[in-house]
């Protein structure tokens, strides 16, 4: 029997939405979501977005979007029962539309470093604003590969920017959630961005297609690798693997073999 297949089948419907949360544990950490062409990991970002903006908490989200406009996320999250416009008006969501970052910066003849410095300034200011009543802050970057494109593929510079974000998380106790694509980096390239990001991450979430092929009711599998290195204390790492099905208004998470 597979070690991860022992799922609480009877109470599954109650526990299903929490399978990802269970695997993630507490906040205040650096999370890297890796996806691939076959399976998009965007839904994990939506999950984080919804979780941080839930009405039960006062947490704030700083969202740097390089890939989609606000309306896109608003539509998806509305179906999931979370109104982003209201959250934005409440200053719980600070949304930065950075789709045109590259062209805007070039017009003013800024160098890539200037571009990233001004971006960091925005993030730092946003963190300051959000932290005035002390609360959990989540910084989400969607996605890093497009940030890399915006600065002319200077991956070292992207790492500099991410480093400053990491230091913000340590200082203000916020979480940093980034999305990147695993398959656009060559495995032979030793200094690849994604490898270095993996070193920095406390938790790596990989979204992959099923190894057994396509299925109608299972859309892929998630692997949550929790390195357990946070906080300077040794906790042994753990790895969870489960499958998911993306529905319109929610995502179902379940252990392999627990659904027929």
């Amino acid at each position: 029997m597979h070690p991860y297949s022992i799922g609480p089948v009877t109470t599954m419907d109650v526990q299903v939405p929490n399978l990802l949360d269970d695997a993630l544990g507490g906040g205040g950490r650096v999370v890297l979501i890796e996806d691939c062409v076959e399976t998009s990991g965007a839904f994990v970002l939506h999950h984080f977005l919804k979780r941080s903006l839930s009405p039960n908490s006062s947490d704030a989200v700083i969202f740097l979007s390089f890939s989609q406009p606000f309306s896109h996320y608003d539509r998806i999250l509305r179906k999931m029962g979370c109104n982003l416009v209201v959250r934005r008006d409440n200053k719980r969501l600070l949304f930065f539309d950075l789709l045109m970052l590259n062209s805007l910066g070039r017009e003013e003849e800024k160098t890539s470093e200037d571009l990233l410095l001004s971006l960091y300034e925005k993030v730092h200011k946003a963190v300051e604003i959000c932290s005035s009543p002390a609360r959990n802050i989540t910084i989400i970057i969607d996605d890093v590969s497009l940030l890399e494109v915006a600065v002319n593929c200077l991956s070292n510079m992207v790492l500099d920017f991410l480093h400053y974000c990491y230091s913000l998380t340590a200082e203000f106790g916020c979480s940093l959630i980034t999305l990147n694509h695993e398959d656009i980096y060559s495995s032979l390239d030793k200094s690849s961005l994604i490898l270095q990001m993996e070193y920095h991450a406390d938790v790596v979430i990989k979204a992959e297609p099923l190894s057994t092929g396509l299925a109608t009711d299972v859309h892929g599998q998630l692997t949550v690798i929790d390195k357990g290195l946070g906080g300077g204390v040794c906790n042994s790492g753990k790895i969870c693997n489960f499958q998911f099905r993306i529905k319109d208004n929610q995502i179902e998470y379940f252990y392999p073999g627990s659904r027929t």
């Binding site: 597979h2 070690p3 991860y4 990989k206 992959e208 190894s211 057994t212 599998q221 692997t223 690798i225 790492g237 753990k238 790895i239 693997n241 392999p256």
Partner: peptide
């Protein structure tokens, strides 16, 4: 398969 590697990775 990923599931076969997991115990090793963990």
């Amino acid at each position: 398969a990923n599931s076969e590697k997991l115990p090793f990775l963990e």
